[in-house]
Design a protein around this nucleic acid. Sequence first.
DNA 1: CATGAATGAGAGTTCATTCAT
DNA 2: AATGAATGAACTCTCATTCAT
Lengths: 215, 215, 215, 215
Amino acid sequence: MKTRDRIIHSALALFNEQGEPNVTTNHIAADLGISPGNLYYHFRNKEEIIHSIFDQYALDLTVGFQPEAPAESDQQRLLAYLDATFQLMWRYRFFYANLPDILRRDAVLQNKYLTAQQSLKTNLFAMLGQFRETGWLDMEDEALASLCSTLKLVASSWIFYQSAQAPQAKITPAVIYQGVLQILNMVSPMTTDKGRAVVGEIIEHYRQQMASASA
Amino acid sequence: MKTRDRIIHSALALFNEQGEPNVTTNHIAADLGISPGNLYYHFRNKEEIIHSIFDQYALDLTVGFQPEAPAESDQQRLLAYLDATFQLMWRYRFFYANLPDILRRDAVLQNKYLTAQQSLKTNLFAMLGQFRETGWLDMEDEALASLCSTLKLVASSWIFYQSAQAPQAKITPAVIYQGVLQILNMVSPMTTDKGRAVVGEIIEHYRQQMASASA
Amino acid sequence: MKTRDRIIHSALALFNEQGEPNVTTNHIAADLGISPGNLYYHFRNKEEIIHSIFDQYALDLTVGFQPEAPAESDQQRLLAYLDATFQLMWRYRFFYANLPDILRRDAVLQNKYLTAQQSLKTNLFAMLGQFRETGWLDMEDEALASLCSTLKLVASSWIFYQSAQAPQAKITPAVIYQGVLQILNMVSPMTTDKGRAVVGEIIEHYRQQMASASA
Amino acid sequence: MKTRDRIIHSALALFNEQGEPNVTTNHIAADLGISPGNLYYHFRNKEEIIHSIFDQYALDLTVGFQPEAPAESDQQRLLAYLDATFQLMWRYRFFYANLPDILRRDAVLQNKYLTAQQSLKTNLFAMLGQFRETGWLDMEDEALASLCSTLKLVASSWIFYQSAQAPQAKITPAVIYQGVLQILNMVSPMTTDKGRAVVGEIIEHYRQQMASASA
DNA sequence: CATGAATGAGAGTTCATTCAT
DNA sequence: AATGAATGAACTCTCATTCAT
């Protein structure tokens, strides 16, 4: 791995563990065993590291959410989607815990973020539309849009919300799974009978994941 | 107003405007035209100011949410509750935008926060139960509990979520009203016919509030 | 007791416990339950408190060391002298632990101190001279002067020296008695047979004092 | 000289001149013409500088007091020992003037200090034992131990004691030589005829040193 | 006599960033 | 590419002292 990538990697790990404001550029350099000067050879400043992390996040987002990705079944596709969503959040969790302050000081990042949010919204909407066509959901357009925005809100805020509930802001995989379940519980009341069966299975699947993660 | 209160007041305003990490004790003192020494005469340190702000918040929370508060009608009571919730958030919005980092470094505050969350959950649950009895909601116990926790999550995260969407993390009253509407949209699908009419009226009410706030 | 005296009293106690540089004027006021303004009504500044303490010390010095004080015997007189010396040190022990810095910043106090030292030397010399006449010591003038200055050095430095050896600079009465014994051990080799018996008895006396103080 | 060493050097000089509590880290940095940040690049905090100075002192102590150091004669060895002792004190005199307060706040340093004191005691005792064997001293074991502890006390306290006597706590080399003479005067009465001659010569030597230092 | 709020200089320390090598 | 010493502005906090009441 190139030094530049190692810096991104280490910074991400430290940000996730300790929160971005508590990690100095010297910490990152020390963690890698390189000099601060070297770090600044690869990045103009701390903000640029955050930008790079965000770019990676945005890339993961587009790569992981190809709606035309082939799948064995619609159920499989939903599972893959949920997994992707929350794994992304897990990997970049520091970001969600400090969003307002990070974006406030960086208008460019703010725009990047909004673009990412837009694409997230688009493919979430597409996914839900597909489920309606499959006959799992029975909702009118407006209600679907409303559900969509609520889901996005909950997903985007889950880490933040849970950080505040957990002592020392320690987020574990189990917390992530709990977020998926929360989402599914919100969708469940809108489902048709056929859909309810599918969602029920998926809920059961994540309950087990969560149990094994907690153990 | 006493200096101690002026400090709390000024700190809250600055925190809300610029984010807590970006406001130094010297900024607060300068804002009030007092010496840094004087600020430290009234507060041992910056953390104690945050504590005092939080205590005020917790007080507002208990004062503003008396379930036995007399009201003309259940509808009036719901309106009052929603107003109180989101006005509280508006007043202490900095807090929601920086929760994870603020709580991480202060275990005592973390506990205070969790206590406040608990009481919030309790009275939210009581409120929803009342509506079910009135015949506005038609839900089973489990579904009600799930709705309750979702609503709490959305309410608690609204400011955080919107801070990230808004340039410079500028939160306006219109954003707050939008949050109320979001909540109502989530409750609406669960209502009875009778309930739907009531919620519809309230939604209309907040649409107008929002329109006049934006103008 | 008048406020002024209470201040002196409290300041002395705190200085002894925590070291003069670690005791602020606010600590003293708080200890007495008076306002800092009141403290400054009675004393122009912190230095003046130290001066007053020193004046009290100087007074105790002259009062407690009257060579013409009547005594049952020479032995009694020696005992009284040793007791007085080390009790004085115990009472004003903070002073000995911080002398260089206290005197450096205050030329007036420096002069007062030198005067006190001079009188201490004078009456110590008188005491030793008396013992020589009594036939307890057998020394020539020069040796007597040398012994005298050594004794003064040891007595003056005892607290300082022991502070450095003891964890947290905690000085106890036992440490004081140990100092008396140190002094007596230095005098002992110079004594005549008659003198040795007397000194031996006194040593035994202080050994018991020390044992009971330690218990 | 490396910056780190220059900092130690400058700090030591300033501490000696003005007393450790009166010298700030900014003073040291300014004295060297470096930034405060640079100082903190080399030392985590002020205490660490003091530790480093002490470590150097402890090193000088072990290096300068090799008992097996070859010497032309016992007399030469004694001279070398006395010189080393008091030169060490001169070089680190700030330390002796502020011991109680410096050690009180730093338990680690306290332990280091006690260790150093122990080794000092050991080699002083060895030196005196040697002189007894050479036939310069005629003392029993207990008396020798007592003399030893008195000498250590006097040596350790000399700077402190003299700081209080001298205006502005200004210690000069002449004061140091006077300390050596004080020590010798204390040993002198215990010597045999042979020893007395030797000590007499050494006393004469230091009287001349002192005279030339004063001039 | 007494209060207690207020002052302000300055303490120790941090950290993103630079730059000569 | 990389080092690591160096910068300097800014931060939190302290404390002897003042002053209106």
